[in-house]
């Protein structure tokens, strides 16, 4: 067993875990933070997306022990204009992917603000504008089986600077 300490949504937490426990399971099962969802559990769907030290990652492929000392933000710790925008634009139907979508979009907007290009960027050395094409490419790691993609893109577009 390994003891880890993290800040989760602003609160100091600690847990004693087997090394094989994922960050997703540690959050959901050990710490009762059930916003991040288990979709595929293999890094393909994005439902488990959380922010670690401000960067979006997949908590299902993260071993919790690797994140000892980290600052973790899940949807429970988010207070962001994207949330109301998702409601306004019908950016969800069943809602299962939504916590991951919103955490991913927050991380994505920060990456774009820092000047990062994407696979949709025509001139990779330049600073790309956040077009609908760019948003779709940058959010491609978050699947929505209800197919609310148009609303998701519209919500992000409204909130993007």
């Amino acid at each position: 067993m390994v003891e880890i300490r993290m800040r989760v949504n602003g609160a100091e937490v600690s847990a004693e875990l087997e090394a094989r426990v994922s960050l997703l399971d540690a959050l959901r099962v050990r710490l009762g933070v059930t916003g991040p969802k288990k979709g595929c559990d293999q890094g393909a769907c994005g439902a488990c997306t959380v922010l670690v030290d401000g960067r979006r990652i997949l908590s299902c492929l993260a071993l919790a022990v690797q994140y000892d000392g980290s600052e973790v933000t899940t949807i429970e710790g988010v207070d962001h204009p994207l949330q109301a925008a998702f409601v306004r634009h019908d950016g969800f139907q069943c809602g299962y992917c939504t916590p991951g979508q919103i955490c991913s979009a927050i991380g994505m907007l920060a990456e774009h603000a820092a000047g990062a290009p994407s696979a949709a960027t025509e001139h990779v050395a330049g600073a790309p504008a956040l077009t609908r094409t760019e948003i779709r490419e940058r959010m491609s790691g978050n699947l929505c089986r209800c197919g609310a993609y148009n609303g998701i893109v519209a919500a992000i577009e409204e909130v993007a600077p």
Binding site: R56, I57, T121, V124, G141
Partner: peptide, 18 residues
């Protein structure tokens, strides 16, 4: 640029952060 483009074409934003 070929390297930046190749890396960006793989996986997703979350996976590339890890």
């Amino acid at each position: 640029p070929v390297l930046a483009q190749a890396v960006l074409s793989g996986a997703s934003g979350q996976l590339r952060n890890m």
